[in-house]
Every structure is written in structure tokens, then in C-alpha cells.
Design a protein around this nucleic acid. Structure first.
Length: 590
DNA sequence: GTAGGGTTAG
């Protein structure tokens, strides 16, 4: 009969719901099988698959003397559901109950200790391992190495490795990984050369170690030397080039790959995105869809959407939205958050709000993206009221939330509120303000015209003000025509970034506003002496499915003359309707 | 029933 239950549980696991779970449990109890040594672990495993560990625990607690398999099923269930502390707490309960762990227990418990940085608990479990005589078990020892290396205790990891009687390739890989994680590539390589056996995972591990420290040369040498490569070997090299800014090698490797999966495409597309080749992101995404042998996943869509945001490519973004829904990513949080950001940054705040409301499950990033999007678009009071909703929904704000909140306050000049939000950040949420928050505060004070308080704030901040802070102050000086403070800010900026001509442009604009033409000329000379030219601001628009970039006074287009004639016509038309351009704003960009 | 390799969002 118990064999029948076991069979039934595994056969129905893929289709049972929590309702069925109750029915099954009723059946089990009525037949007196709740404590059966074969049925109990199966039942717990079924609960874990359905993410019903609370329910599993109720049943488990009724078993008077659970066997090791039931304990292990509980540990595995908690671990699968990422409740690592429950694993650790239940393990101490196991010891109090006098039950004996076996070699299957320790890997799960040790991994949980590593996941949540439970240092003392981890060492206690290690003691039990030694007491139980499991320290040479390859599974247990390897997990111990991982645990110690995850907290940077390389010595403790090596001790475990050294005391192993038989070291297989997995143990060697873990030990080498331990050295890599503390960037000791010399020791990692020494072990790699010493290893009696090297499989493909070990080669790949070593290669990604070199990539992590930025040594693409060494990575490539190993890649060329390895006896056989799998897709992951190729993908590792590909994304290595991408993160190290070598787009050409990335493209070359992609073309040479014998086999491509979604990670290969994401490597290429992500490489373009990270290095600012945004049109190439869209082009290679289109190519991916044309070749059609690999389906994009959520990571692909997120990268593409974030490129749309940066390009302002709203039409493409909308297309990706429809496409994402058609392949089943409607409820995906990553995609949803990227969609909110894309719509907000492309200026379509209504669609951003729609996506926001359509998401049943939201995380901190969802709220942050929406709050920042609203703040950016001048919906400052909506941003602030959404912050209240966020708190009511029980979501904890973080540092990014407050960047949005503080910039919302800046937009509508709420100096006092800004200060109290800044204070609540520390008092209520114990978030340590970072330099970007101080930047927001300087901006808040500066734009409100409280320049004395702004400079006072800068002098009192606990870290060294960076160029963003001084630039914010300089910007405020321009609005309120404060030359003395502007000169002070510029002095700091020259020290921090001597090669950025934009700073001189800003000061010379202030002189220009005040009609101090001699000073304008003087700062132009100073700028020339840096030997650098300010890169002109570049704008992009979406035309006929592709993205076109243009500069101020750009003459590179074939139809330049027509374009400027039309522009002139439009300007005249606008003026006839009473539009007066803000020349101060325009001058700033000249 | 247990151990070593992956990307994405503010």
C-alpha cells in the first residue's frame, strides 16, 4: 500500500495543486501512513515542488520520530525555496532531537550556511561533519570548500582540501575557484597545472578567472589550448571580450562559433549594449529573430529594451512589448521593469503606468523605476504619492528610491520636505546616504536659489565631493548668476577632471549671461589650453525603423539644405503662433 | 535523494 502512495505522489506531482495536497494528506492519514518512512519524504518533496513548505512542515511536525530521509527532504525543500535560514534552524532542531545526519544532509546545510553568510553556524556544522566522520566524503568536503571560499576564508578552504583522502576533479575545481574568487590567479594556475585530471568545466572555470581579472591574453591562450570546447567555453570568451570593451573580438568570435545558444546571442547583444553601440543592439536582435533558430529569453529582451530607452526608440520598444507578450513574458518581472523604464524614458508615461499596474507581483526595482520615471517627467507629486503606496504595500525603499524622491522634491522646489525625506532615510530605514544623495541635496538647495546653504552642505558632507556635486553647484550658479561661487566650483572641477572642457563652457556661459565678454574670451583660451574639445551633445531619433543621430549644426546629411530650409519654415510658423524660444537654454548647448 | 560553470531591471 505504501508503495502505491509513493507511486501516486510521483505520478501526480506535475499536476497536483494545493487542493489536491489536502486530499492526498487526508488519504494518507486515514490509512495511517503519515509516519511511513517511504511516504513522508515523498510527500514533503511534493510540497516543496509546489512551494508549500509551511504545509510540509505541519505534516513533518506530526511525525514523532522522523527518519533521516524525512529530515533531508525538509532541508532540500527549504533550500529549493531559498529559505536558507529555515534549513539552518531545522538542523539545530535535528541535533536537539538526537537524530543523526548522514552524508546527504551536510551538503545541503553547508550550502545554506554559505548562502546567508552564517559564519558561526557554518563552523558548528563543520564540527558535526568531523564528529560524524564525513570529512573525507567528496560531496561534503567540496561543499565545505565552497562555503569557506564564499566568505573569503581561503586558508580554511585549503585545509579541507588538503585533508581530503581522494580529491576528484570537482574538488580541484572548487579549490581553484576559491583562489579565483580572491583574485589570486597565480595560486589558481599552480593548482590548475597540478590537477591530475582536467575536464571542460575546469578549463572554463580557469578561463573565466582570467577574464574576471581582465587578463584576456591569458584567457585566450587557454581557450586556444583546450582539448575540446563546448558552447559555454565560446560564450565565456565572448562575454569576456564584451565586458573588457573589445567589441571587434566579440564580433569575430561570434561569427566563428560552431554552435550558438541564447547565451551566445545575449553575449553579443550585451557586448554592444555595454559599449554603447546601441543601434547594433537593435540590429543584432533583428538578426536573431530572422535567423530564428534561437528564441530570445528575458535577458535578451531586457537588454534590447534598455537600449530602446537610451535611444528614445519608442516604436521599437512598443514592438518589443507586443513581441514579449506573444512569447509569454507578460508576467516576467525583469521584462516588466524594463518596459516601465523604456516607456518612462521615451516620454510615454501613460504606458509606463499601465505596465506598472499590470504587474501582479512587484519588487523594489518596479517601484523605484516607476517613482524615478514619474519624477523625471515632472510628475513630482505623483512620484511622492507613489512612494506612500510603496510603503503601504510593505515594500522597503532603498537608496535608489530616495534618489527619485529627492529629485521629485527638487523639481517642485520642496526644500523642507526634501530635508525631512533625507532625514527619514537615515532614521527610519537606516540607509546610509551615498554621494548621489548628497548630490540630490546640493541640487535641491542650488535650484531653489539657496546657494549659501548648498555650499555649506557640500562642506559638511562626510565624503569628498565629486565632480557631479560641483557641477550641480556650478549649474545653480548659472541660474542665479553667482560668479564668485561659480569660480570656486570650477576650481574644484579643474582639479577633479582637468580634461573636461564642459566645465569651462559652463563658466564662460555665466560670463556671457552677465555680458562679461573679456572673461568669456579668457575662459575659452583656458579651455583651448587643456587640449581637449568638448564633445558636442548628440541627439537620436527613430526614422523608418532605424535610428539616426545628429549634432547641433550637423551638416553630414545628404539633404542638409532641405532639412534646414524646412526647419527655418517651422520656426517661422511657430513664432507666428506666439512661440518665443528660450535662448538661454539654447546657448547652454552651443 | 547530495558537490564544481551563466547573462538581464532602478
Amino acid at each position: 500500500m505504501d508503495g502505491l502512495f509513493t507511486l501516486w505522489l510521483s505520478a501526480t506531482m506535475f499536476e497536483i495543486t494545493s487542493n489536491h495536497l489536502h486530499q492526498i494528506q487526508g488519504q494518507i492519514i486515514s490509512h495511517g501512513f503519515e509516519c511511513n518512512e517511504y511516504v513522508a519524504p515523498k510527500f514533503i518533496t511534493a510540497c516543496a515542488e509546489l512551494k508549500k513548505m509551511g504545509y510540509a512542515r505541519k505534516v513533518f511536525d506530526q511525525i514523532p520520530d522522523p527518519n533521516t530521509a524525512s529530515w533531508n527532504a525538509m532541508f532540500r525543500g527549504y533550500s529549493q525555496n531559498e529559505s536558507y535560514w529555515d534549513v539552518i534552524v531545522l538542523f539545530s532542531q535535528m541535533n536537539r532531537a538526537g537524530a543523526l545526519p548522514n552524508c546527504f544532509t551536510f551538503p545541503i546545510v553547508l550550502r545554506s550556511c554559505g548562502k546567508v553568510n552564517a559564519t558561526t553556524e557554518g563552523e558548528e556544522v563543520h564540527c558535526f561533519v568531523v564528529k560524524g566522520g564525513f570529512k573525507s566524503n567528496p560531496f561534503v568536503a567540496t561543499t565545505l570548500i565552497d562555503m569557506y571560499s564564499s566568505r573569503g576564508s581561503i586558508g580554511a578552504a585549503y585545509k579541507v582540501f588538503g585533508e581530503m583522502i581522494e580529491r576528484n576533479v570537482v574538488a580541484w575545481t572548487s579549490m581553484i575557484n576559491a583562489y579565483i574568487s580572491c583574485h589570486d590567479m597565480v595560486s589558481a594556475r599552480r593548482l590548475f597545472d597540478l590537477a591530475p585530471e582536467r575536464d571542460i568545466i575546469l578549463w572554463n572555470t580557469m578561463i573565466s578567472g582570467y577574464i574576471e581579472v581582465g587578463d584576456m591574453e591569458a584567457a585566450r591562450q587557454l581557450f586556444d589550448k583546450m582539448p575540446s570546447r563546448d558552447v559555454m567555453s565560446w560564450n565565456t570568451m565572448l562575454s569576456g571580450y564584451a565586458t573588457n570593451g573589445d567589441v571587434e573580438s566579440c564580433e569575430k568570435l561570434f561569427k566563428k562559433m560552431p554552435e550558438r545558444n541564447v547565451f551566445s546571442w545575449n553575449g553579443l547583444i550585451g557586448g554592444y549594449a555595454r559599449n554603447g553601440h546601441l543601434s547594433e543592439v537593435l540590429n543584432s536582435f533583428k538578426q536573431m529573430l530572422i535567423e530564428a533558430d534561437v528564441l530570445p529569453n528575458d535577458a535578451t529582451l531586457v537588454t534590447v529594451l534598455s537600449s530602446c530607452s537610451r535611444l528614445g526608440a519608442l516604436d521599437m520598444g512598443k514592438w518589443v512589448h507586443v513581441y514579449a507578450e506573444s512569447i509569454g513574458f507578460t508576467e516576467n518581472l525583469f521584462v516588466g521593469n524594463a518596459l516601465i523604464d523604456m516607456y518612462a524614458k521615451c516620454g510615454n508615461i501613460e504606458n509606463a503606468i499601465d505596465v506598472f499596474h499590470s504587474l501582479d507581483k512587484k519588487d523594489t526595482i518596479t517601484w523605484n523605476t516607476m517613482i524615478n520615471g514619474l519624477a523625471m517627467h515632472g510628475h513630482a507629486s505623483d512620484a511622492l504619492s507613489l512612494f506612500d503606496h510603496m510603503k503601504n504595500a510593505g515594500e522597503k525603499p532603498d537608496g535608489v528610491t530616495f534618489v527619485g524622491i529627492l529629485s521629485a522634491c527638487t523639481h517642485i522646489g520642496l526644500v523642507k520636505d526634501g530635508f525631512s525625506y533625507f532625514q527619514s532615510m537615515v532614521d527610519q530605514y537606516s540607509i546610509v546616504p551615498q554621494i548621489e544623495h548628497y548630490g540630490c541635496m546640493v541640487d535641491l538647495l542650488g535650484r531653489a536659489g539657496l546657494l549659501d546653504q548648498a555650499i555649506d552642505f557640500v562642506r559638511k558632507m562626510p565624503m569628498k565631493p565629486d565632480s557631479i556635486i560641483w557641477a550641480a553647484l556650478l549649474g545653480a550658479c548659472r541660474i542665479y548668476k553667482n560668479v564668485e561661487l561659480a569660480e570656486l566650483a570650477l576650481q574644484q572641477l579643474i582639479e577633479l577632471e582637468p580634461n573636461n572642457p564642459a566645465n569651462f563652457v559652463m563658466l564662460s556661459n555665466i560670463y556671457k549671461d552677465l555680458g562679461r565678454w573679456q572673461d568669456v574670451a579668457r575662459s575659452k583660451v583656458a579651455m583651448r589650453d587643456t587640449g581637449f574639445r568638448k564633445l558636442p551633445g548628440c541627439s537620436v531619433i527613430e526614422v523608418n525603423d532605424s535610428v539616426v543621430e545628429f549634432y547641433s549644426l550637423d551638416e553630414r546629411h545628404l539633404e542638409t539644405e532641405d532639412i534646414y530650409r524646412t526647419l527655418k519654415g517651422l520656426t517661422i510658423l511657430l513664432r507666428s503662433y506666439g512661440y518665443v524660444p528660450n535662448l538661454v537654454e539654447v546657448g547652454q548647448r552651443a
